[in-house]
């Protein structure tokens, strides 16, 4: 009992040090105090480390927003694209360079509002890309406008009397559109989030991960959700971890709780392979 305590950390390839994945000269980063996006960034780097990815083979493609800005801080190939379009750029990149691990960092506004169409078609195509969407229920960067994931009744600068629109469940959307891997996690469960991201990156096909993040400064303040510690803890309490293998379907006390963990995983044909084999055989035929 006493001696099997060599944790994965010490027996693994090399202890994870986030510093070696950062462009440190750009720090401190520009995010507000307590912004959950920073926690998600660490989890993503941690996942890449544990998968032993070569930094030169990582391509981070990000959109516009506080979330999109994260790409700039990563010491790898990074591509800061236009609002809503990171998946379109990523699609081109992955088709041209299948050897790269293409990871998209996007926000709820970026991915579901202006970029919603790109998302559904990326899911449909099933190209081997990982999409990490940071959902803080708001357009953080532009000062806190309502987004497709804003909960009902919440205050934002564009919903001064509370949001009256219905809310997107982005994981259901991605699954319905055909994503072959879908998962969700909160930032406060960092090791679990890291493991989910590992699975997503490892998955062959389009993988979509929704990270529940907190925009403390704008959304939290406007809705009186407390400071960052309170916000990240309450997010966790609003989730329903799928730890019982889906046996517990409904929670009577929290009917709106969202499930976390891996929600969908299938091995549908990956588009890049299909595309390349079709091209190869058409060349032969010509």
């Amino acid at each position: 009992m006493a001696k099997k305590k060599q944790s994965a950390e010490t027996s693994g390839p090399k202890e994870f040090d986030v510093m070696s994945y950062l462009r440190r000269d750009l720090f401190p980063h520009f995010l507000c105090p307590g912004c959950g996006h920073g926690i998600a960034l660490r989890a993503l780097m941690w996942a890449a480390h544990e998968l032993g990815l070569d930094k030169d083979k990582i391509a981070i493609v990000s959109g516009i927003g506080c979330s999109g800005r994260l790409g700039a801080y990563v010491d790898a190939n990074t591509f800061h694209t236009t609002h809503g379009r990171p998946l379109a750029y990523a699609t081109g990149l992955k088709l041209a360079r299948p050897d790269l691990h293409v990871i998209v960092i996007t926000g709820d506004g970026d991915c579901l509002a202006i970029g919603g169409n790109h998302l559904i078609h990326a899911c449909r195509r099933n190209l081997d890309i990982t999409c990490m969407m940071l959902n803080n229920e708001v357009y953080g960067m532009t000062g806190g406008q309502v987004s497709p994931t804003t909960s009902q009744d919440r205050y934002t600068t564009t919903t001064p009397t509370g949001n009256t629109e219905a809310t997107f469940d982005s994981c259901k959307l991605a699954e319905a559109a055909g994503a072959s891997f879908v998962g969700r996690e909160v930032t406060v469960q960092t090791p679990t989030l890291k493991n989910l991201l590992k699975d997503a990156i490892d998955h062959k096909g389009f993988s979509f991960v929704e990270v529940i993040s907190d925009c403390t400064e704008i959304y939290g303040r406007k809705n009186d959700l407390g400071n960052s510690p309170e916000m990240i803890l309450s997010q966790k309490s609003q989730m329903r971890p799928d730890s019982y293998g889906g046996v517990i379907v409904d929670e009577p006390f929290r009917p709106n709780a969202l499930p976390t963990g891996v929600l969908t995983r299938s091995d549908r044909a990956e588009y890049g392979e299909t595309y390349r084999s079709t091209m190869a055989s058409s060349k032969k035929g010509a």
Partner: peptide, 17 residues
């Protein structure tokens, strides 16, 4: 370390580190 959004904390846990 995990939860610092600013990546300001590093925990060294082996004797050498």
């Amino acid at each position: 370390e995990w939860l610092c959004p600013d990546l300001a904390i590093t925990v060294h846990r082996t004797p050498e580190a």
